[in-house]
Simulated assay, not measured.
Amino acid sequence: MTDKFIFRFVAGITIFVIAVVIVLNRHLIPGPATPPAFTPYLPLLNAILNGTCSVLLLVSLYFIKNGNIAMHKRINILTFCLSSLFLVSYILFHYLMRNDTLYGDANADGILSSDEKTLAGGLRTLYLTILIPHIILAAGVLPLILLSFYRGLQMQVEKHKKLVRWTFPLWLFVTVSGVVVYLMIKPYYHF
């Protein structure tokens, strides 16, 4: 396969995934009237997958720093698979759920005390400060992950190293911030 083909393939996948996420987040494709019973568990699953990927990325770094290429490759394949599973679960959740969850929304009774409103307002700023770069970098790191993965599997070591200098910290930020975003928004889920 030529580099031109690989770049086009990666661009196509990236554009497709971003388009699907935007369409689902804007509710342009209606999900079922009543989501399946497992739907509320998907955000927790996503956080677990993100957390696991965070740990695996660090383990992968450990192995490559110690010259164990075989384990580095195995861990990265596992991380890639779990990240792919995360993406499927994330898309499924946004397809199935019709209601958006907003940070600082009222509790299930629809009531917030003045102290809760003040605390939620301050923490909402922190939440958005984490969420916005998380979203932007999640979209931006996808092609880097795909290209890094391809270069690594092809043992194109120098090209892989150049890409991973950017891919690793961005991917790690996205996986860690994904867990933080989940923990911060979890109290406002009402399903």
Rank of each mutant, 00 (worst) to 15 (best):
A139T: 04
T175R: 00
L119N: 12
I111D: 06
G178T: 11
I69K: 14
F149R: 00
V21E: 12
I13S: 01
F7R: 10
E116I: 05
G51E: 08
L45A: 14
V180P: 04
M1Q: 04
A139D: 06
L112S: 13
T39W: 06
L87S: 13
A70K: 15
N50R: 03
V141T: 06
P40L: 08
Y90T: 02
L147F: 04
K159E: 15
I75S: 02
T52L: 12
K161D: 06
V88P: 00
H190G: 01
F173I: 11
L61I: 08
I75V: 15
C81G: 07
L163R: 01
F191S: 12
A33V: 13
R124M: 13
Y188S: 07
K4N: 10
A19F: 12
L142A: 04
F80V: 08
M184C: 13
V141D: 06
P36M: 08
G104Q: 06
V174E: 01
K65N: 14
Y182R: 12
N68V: 13
P43C: 08
L45M: 14
A106T: 13
L78D: 03
A138E: 00
I132L: 10
V157K: 10
I75Q: 04
P169L: 05
L56V: 11
Y103S: 07
N99Q: 13
G121S: 13
N25G: 15
L58P: 11
W166P: 02
D105Y: 03
S83G: 15
A19G: 06
G152Q: 05
V141P: 02
R26A: 14
L85V: 15
L153G: 01
A70T: 14
F168C: 00
M71P: 00
V174S: 09
Y127I: 09
M71Q: 13
I69A: 14
Y127E: 03
N46A: 11
F191P: 05
K4C: 01
I135M: 10
V10R: 01
C81E: 03
M155Y: 07
Q156F: 02
L119W: 04
G67L: 03
G110I: 09
A11Q: 03
V157G: 00
H72E: 09
V23R: 08
I29E: 01
G67E: 08
K186L: 11
L183P: 09
L78S: 11
F9W: 10
I77H: 08
Y103K: 07
F86D: 07
T118Y: 04
R124F: 02
T34L: 09
K161F: 01
R151I: 00
L58S: 08
N25R: 13
A108G: 00
L153M: 14
V181F: 09
P169M: 09
I135F: 02
W166M: 11
D100I: 13
K186Q: 15
L56N: 09
L44H: 06
N68C: 10
D115Y: 05
Y182T: 05
C81L: 15
V10P: 02
L147V: 07
L183F: 14
I29G: 03
V176T: 11
L96S: 06
L170S: 11
M1R: 10
H27C: 01
V10C: 07
S177Q: 09
W171C: 05
H27D: 10
V59F: 15
L87C: 13
V88H: 03
I48H: 01
F93M: 07
